[in-house]
Design a binder for these strands. Structure first.
Length: 419
RNA sequence: GGAGAGGUGGCCGAGUGGUCGAAGGCGGUUGACUCGAAAUCAAUUGUACGCCCACCAGCGUACCGCAGGUUCGAAUCCUGUCCUCUCCGCCA
């Protein structure tokens, strides 16, 4: 949620920012609605004030055992008007919020303007792309030969886009999770969290999934399966006022994630690149506003270190205005090199949402002088575990179809190779 | 799943229809004392929205889990709902 001050003081800026994202929202109408709501509020407050005053007067008279019928009559005359004004105010306010919650964050000036992912800008590359003396296979071919992934049985149990990890496949996934969590908690200063996987509706609103992306979420008994640990981690401090000294707060969590992937029909149908359920290690930070962009760099670097230590080549791109997510002002995607696909694929997405989520979830902190502020929230994958497993398989495959395990992962995996 | 108790400000805790945004305590902040700290004393200390002025400030409204209702007036009464705790049952 944006600061209403933008709407009141600089609607032209908001219009431009929405245009950059190719959003079609009637800003003038919002300005008009906001004005009307404030007017209503003033009228309502005055009515209530006069009622309160009279009621107190009645109380005083009754205490003195005096008649107050004339005052009661007077108050009763305004009762109808108060009710009507209040109802109208509530209705208008709700109408306004229904639209306001659909307004995306304003992109930062460093976010390139562009219509989609083809306008993302490469920032840097890391690692040497290995020359194979043979045609590298895709991960699902390798996994099939090594009996690591079972798509048929995944489909039997749960339908398409579900998979069963088997044997060394399951072990490799688990090793990656532990490796990542240890790295972030022991070396990057994150506190490990195991959050609930099912959350309430307002929690989904807090991080920006709802109301706009309701179709993406699995619902269960009026609650929702988390599409990312970002949701419970950011909302951990919803409706709280933190202390300035508490910041920055850094959380890391491994969770399964659940997404309906509506609208991605026909995309990535083979393998585990796009699943309804997948594992992810997530990083979240709460920072002071002036520190959030430095924190975004640090958070992205922390995610990159996972790939560096595993020896997986990648590049970092900054997302364009047409590709960036709803809540983010600036986002770096980390794309890992997949030799089997012969292309870079997203393995992490690191975003600064500024105070957008903090406002939605009502997360504040009290500064040293006693004023309350909204912290900035950041989130990033550190990294997507399934896609990381794909990257390990494809980058470390040998001509005979076996997989070498990256040096740093061996203590976690317990073997030097899979064959 | 059954039975009972309870949800009040950062925390503890009083308050059962009227000057209660709410006693008291703890904590926080500021000042005095002190070379400094502790102790002590004094003052101050909720959130959101709106109005007004932006030097400090000031005014109004709402909020005592949440949503309704009764009433001139609700933290207090009524209804619904959510949550927490205790005991029993079940269970990883």
């Amino acid at each position: 949620m944006l600061d209403l001050a933008v709407l009141r003081k600089n609607p032209e800026l908001l219009k431009k920012k929405l245009q950059d994202r190719f959003y079609d929202i009637d800003v003038d109408k919002l300005v008009e609605m906001d004005k009307e709501i404030r007017k209503n509020k003033s009228v309502l407050d005055e009515l209530l004030a006069s009622r309160n005053k009279l009621s107190k007067e009645i109380g005083k008279r009754k205490a003195k055992k005096e008649q107050a019928d004339d005052l009661i009559k007077k108050v009763n005359e305004t009762a109808d008007k108060i009710k009507k004004t209040e109802e109208e105010y509530n209705k208008k306010h709700e109408e306004f919020m229904n639209i306001w919650l659909l307004v995306p964050n304003m992109i930062d000036d460093s976010t390139p303007i562009g219509k989609d992912e083809s306008d993302n800008v490469e920032i840097r590359k890391w690692g040497d792309i290995k020359e194979f003396g043979f045609k590298p296979k895709e991960h699902f071919e390798l996994a099939a030969e090594l009996d690591m992934l079972d798509f048929e049985r995944g489909a039997k149990l749960s339908g398409s886009r579900f998979v069963v990890y088997k044997g060394l496949g399951a072990r490799l996934e688990r090793a990656l999770i532990n490796f990542m969590l240890d790295l972030h908690t022991k070396e990057h200063g994150y506190k490990e969290i195991i959050p609930p996987y099912i959350v309430n509706e307002n929690v989904m609103v807090g991080t920006g999934q709802f109301p706009k992306f309701r179709d993406e979420a699995y619902e269960t008994g009026g609650q929702y399966l988390i599409p990312t640990a970002e949701v419970p981690l950011v909302n951990l401090h919803r409706e709280e006022i933190l202390k300035e000294d508490d910041l920055p707060i850094k959380y890391a969590a491994y969770t399964a994630c659940f997404r309906k992937e509506a609208g991605s029909y026909g995309k990535d149908v083979k393998g585990i690149i796009r699943q309804h359920q997948f594992n992810k290690v997530e990083l979240v930070q709460f920072t002071k506003p002036e520190e959030s962009f430095d924190a975004l760099e640090a958070l992205t670097n922390s995610a990159e270190r996972v790939l560096q230590l595993l020896g997986l080549p990648y590049r970092v791109v900054v997302l364009s205005s047409g590709d960036i997510g709803f809540s983010a002002a600036k986002t770096y995607d980390i794309e890992v090199w997949l030799p089997g696909q012969n292309q870079y694929r997203e393995i992490s997405s690191c975003s600064n949402t500024l105070d957008f989520q903090a406002r939605r979830a009502s997360i504040r902190y009290k500064g040293k002088e006693g004023k309350t502020y909204f912290p900035h929230t950041l989130n990033g994958s550190g990294v997507a575990v399934g896609r990381c497993l794909v990257a390990v398989l494809e980058n470390y495959q040998q001509e005979d179809g076996s997989i070498k395990i990256p040096e740093k992962l061996i203590p976690y995996f317990g073997d030097k190779e899979i064959r």
